[in-house]
């Protein structure tokens, strides 16, 4: 795979903290929570598009971390493990939501305050960001999950297939469909919006 911009999970965690957390040290566990709360929450929010579900995912992810970190071996990346736990908790939320009377979540309105918030990436203006957020909100759950996990988090189709209980070719075709839909939604000239 080509290099993908490292996501916010690339948090430096020192070995001493990890060792202490593995031994059950509460301050060390809290330090880990502080390092990863924003990326875990953000990722969960991207995948579920619900602040409520994202809060649940954050809690459940760290309950799992507290429960299982003593079994975590130093050979893998801690961030990678935490991120994987978060993804699987978020997918579980989506599955459950669809099992019940699932209602399409409507994209949330972005207020002027949101527009004034930074920081924006170099290639993204505020207006483009709103377009992208809105467009993401209009994708189906599956399409959104696949494009986010693949294009942003850098998971391979095999990894996504394993996490979502699907095949790699399903992941590939969903990614292409997600891009087709995004292209449609973001196409210039389709939406008339004043330049701000």
């Amino acid at each position: 795979m080509t290099a993908v911009t490292p996501t916010s999970f690339a948090v430096p965690v020192d070995e001493i903290t990890v060792a202490r957390a593995r031994a059950g040290d509460e301050a060390a566990l809290e330090a880990l929570f502080r390092s990863f709360e924003a990326p875990v929450y953000s990722l969960a929010r991207r995948l579920t598009r619900s602040t409520h579900d994202a809060e649940d995912v954050l809690q459940e992810t760290f309950l799992e971390v507290v429960r299982s970190i003593h079994r975590f071996r130093g050979d893998g990346s801690l961030a990678g493990w935490i991120r994987k736990v978060a993804v699987s908790k978020a997918l579980m939320k989506l599955r459950r939501r669809r099992g019940s009377a699932f209602e399409e979540t409507l994209p949330e309105d972005l207020s002027d305050d949101d527009l004034a918030l930074g920081p924006y990436g170099p290639a993204t203006s505020a207006a483009e960001r709103v377009d992208l957020e809105t467009a993401l909100g209009r994708l189906s759950d599956v399409a959104r999950v696949v494009i986010w996990l693949h294009d942003v988090e850098g998971y391979s189709h095999d990894e996504i297939a394993a996490m979502a209980g699907k095949t790699a070719s399903f992941s590939k075709s969903q990614l292409a469909r997600a891009h087709a839909r995004l292209r449609e939604l973001l196409a210039p000239g389709v939406r008339e919006e004043p330049c701000t």
Binding site: R45, G121, L132
Partner: peptide
Amino acid sequence: EALAALPDEPP
């Protein structure tokens, strides 16, 4: 790149 540049949101 634009997707990756969307800002993180803290709880």
